[in-house]
Design a protein around this nucleic acid. Structure first.
Lengths: 215, 215
DNA sequence: CCTTTTGTGTTGCATATGCAACGGAAATCA
DNA sequence: TGATTTCCGTTGCATATGCAACACAAAAGG
């Protein structure tokens, strides 16, 4: 593992990383695309960090409707300590989108004040805090998005996010339209209809997944 | 300030707390009920922790509709580092619900590896991680709630949360119905109507804010 | 105490949105 | 290449939900 490029291990010597991960009984998992991770298996008492790849957390309700709760990108964290509790009565699944390498860190190991070599441990916690902070930001932004009342508002809000991220009024939706609808928790056909309305109203210009915000 | 009862300062001696807070240039704010905190004033580069009281983060859209994004209870954290970014194009306001004492910690002070007395600093960070972890959990749970498609699903999901929290199928909604509607991001009258429907369908029993989950 | 504000339940109406179904395009796969 | 699957846009229909308005209850405030 090349520790030097992983934010979680920033400012920690590679040798220390190996030793620490070993001491923590942490382990990594290689996932192929479309592979599912069952919550209880690994998340029970662990924090998960995607060293590479991408994971989608979603929920399928009894009517078969899928809602995407989170999309976890590279070097982001997820898992029980910082995510959906297993007490939820709906089925929450984590599916690998892009081939991923996932590091699992046992919670109790993180919490314990280790007696030896605390220097790098506290640095790791500090780095975890940084990751957690990013996660909280993205979750907050997600709450803000899902609190929008109408389809048009959700789309607009999401497009503003993309525009801000790309630094331009023209950008490309990074998901398929089907996935986007699941992500916004709305019906796909209704979304397509609303996109057409927004186009006709002169709010946006759209060619496939390429969107331009007008006015 | 009585540090001993505040989770943020757990396992840190009171004398160390004083010294550290002083060194960090942190400060506290006393808020009366209904008082608003403007984002830019305090949150710009700070983490906020409610030592006591309660704060509501909400958004008012151009149509005057209010959506409650978060309700921050005692000993929870909020602020820019872990909340809604100021780049949001809607107006997000933080309002004090119960008289509160809020501690502001500058981000850069937290991040810096202080040269002296790192022991209690790293303990503080560890405690922050704990707070942040709780916050992430509550945000995730919020995403899960808001991702529900229908009013009935939102109500049901929320009631399950209350039931789990109270350890009973009978509980009392802790907010006014108006507030609850804002919290679920739905229309109040539509919510009342749906509650009646659920009652008639035998799913719940409801007398005012007292709810019982049947079946 | 009276006055004012806020909360609550109700209902008629308009419509935004979900749902099902279909055909064609595009992508994947063998 | 051909076969299969996924993706996408469209539309008719039913209805869940937002909205406005109202009356009354409850709470707050002076």
């Amino acid at each position: 593992m090349n520790f030097s490029k992983i934010p979680l291990f920033e400012n920690i010597a590679a040798s220390e990383c190996s030793r620490m991960l070993d001491c923590f009984h942490s382990y990594t998992l290689l996932l192929k695309a479309d592979q599912e991770i069952t919550i209880q298996d690994h998340f029970k008492d662990c924090v998960a960090v995607t060293l590479s790849g991408s994971v989608e957390i979603s929920r399928i309700d009894i009517n078969g409707r899928k809602s995407i709760l989170e999309i976890i990108g590279e070097n982001e964290m997820f898992g029980r300590l910082c995510s959906f509790s297993p007490e939820e009565y709906d089925t929450v699944i984590a599916k690998c989108i892009l081939p991923a390498e996932i590091l699992f860190l046992p919670n109790d190991q993180i919490e314990k004040q280790c007696s030896n070599a605390c220097q790098c441990h506290s640095r790791l916690i500090s780095n975890l805090l940084e990751l957690m902070s990013k996660k909280t930001n993205s979750l907050s932004s997600r709450v803000n998005l899902l609190s929008q009342r109408t389809i048009r508002e959700k789309l607009t809000h999401y497009f503003y996010q993309l525009a801000a991220a790309s630094g331009s009024n023209s950008f490309r939706i990074p998901y398929s339209m089907t996935t986007l609808a699941d992500y916004l928790c709305i019906d796909r056909s209704a979304m397509t209809r609303e996109l057409k309305n927004m186009k006709e109203a002169g709010i946006i210009d759209a060619h496939g997944r390429n969107i331009s915000l007008l006015q």
